[in-house]
């Protein structure tokens, strides 16, 4: 099923590319434009920098990198008791992207559509979580305070190389030195590897690792919502 969808996706890209090729190139190339653009990106996969080279109005190639070091805390309930959850996600990638502008000949928003395919190399692609049971564990009349209960440590790691597919909106020919673009897409990260260990009275939760692995197998895509701050050079 996944292979079929991938083939369909590539087919769609070829279709839009063939439509773009039929446009009148002469009118487009007559306009003065920046062939090299530098972009600051703010996105769900982090903040970064891209360098873009567009030899033709229809096609451009981008290289860049982005990083996402985030952490946070939350309180959830486990067995009706409040549980502290500290999480830490760390994503950092270098990427090579190919941009296509398939609808340049159309008017309005369609002309700004850019379809992007590429690949990212994630030297960091992991998430860690530490769960601390806040309540008191009762074993008969013996009370075990949370400080003695131990902690749960969960970890998730994804593949280092991930293909990317997405689209966005962007002016092909920035008439000014600066403009803004938007992009939406996803990296295919593959099935992550999940680990779950515990300490003290939570040490037996290693047996939950298989279920966590199963649950995390649904998290194969890293969604990307991105704002590009483009500077023409």
């Amino acid at each position: 099923m996944k292979r079929t969808i991938t083939i369909l996706s590539l087919g769609a890209l070829l279709t839009v590319y063939s439509q773009a090729k039929s446009q009148s190139k002469s009118a487009l190339e007559a306009v003065k434009r920046s062939e090299v653009t530098i972009s600051a990106t703010i996105a769900t996969q982090g903040v970064g920098l891209d360098l873009k080279y567009a030899p033709t109005p229809v096609f451009a190639a981008r290289v860049g990198a982005s990083i996402l070091p985030i952490s946070g805390q939350g309180v959830y309930r486990v067995r009706s008791e409040p549980t502290d959850v500290d999480f830490d996600a760390d994503f950092a990638n270098a990427h090579l992207m190919l941009d296509f502008h398939p609808f340049l000949s159309e008017e309005g928003l369609s002309s700004k559509v850019v379809v992007t395919a590429g690949v990212g190399y994630f030297w960091k692609a992991k998430g860690d979580v530490v769960v601390s049971y806040r309540g008191t564990y009762k074993y008969g009349d013996i009370l075990i305070p949370s400080a003695d209960l131990g902690q749960l440590y969960g970890g998730v790691k994804w593949d280092k190389v991930a293909p990317y597919l997405g689209f966005g909106f962007e002016n092909v020919f920035p008439k000014k030195a600066f403009n803004i673009g938007f992009a939406i897409g996803a990296y295919y990260m593959g099935e992550p590897k999940a680990t779950l260990t515990g300490t003290n009275y939570l040490s037996l939760n290693t047996s939950n690792q298989a279920q966590l692995q199963k649950n995390m197998s649904y998290y194969r895509f890293l969604p990307v919502l991105q704002i590009n701050l483009n500077f023409g050079l």
Binding site: I5, Y133, L149, A186, N200, Q211, L212, Y218, P223
Partner: peptide, 18 residues
């Protein structure tokens, strides 16, 4: 199709060592 969601804690029952 690709990215159906699931709670990471789905069917995980925290075990306390007895």
């Amino acid at each position: 199709l690709f990215n159906s969601c699931r709670n990471p804690a789905y069917e995980i029952n925290v075990l306390f060592d007895a």
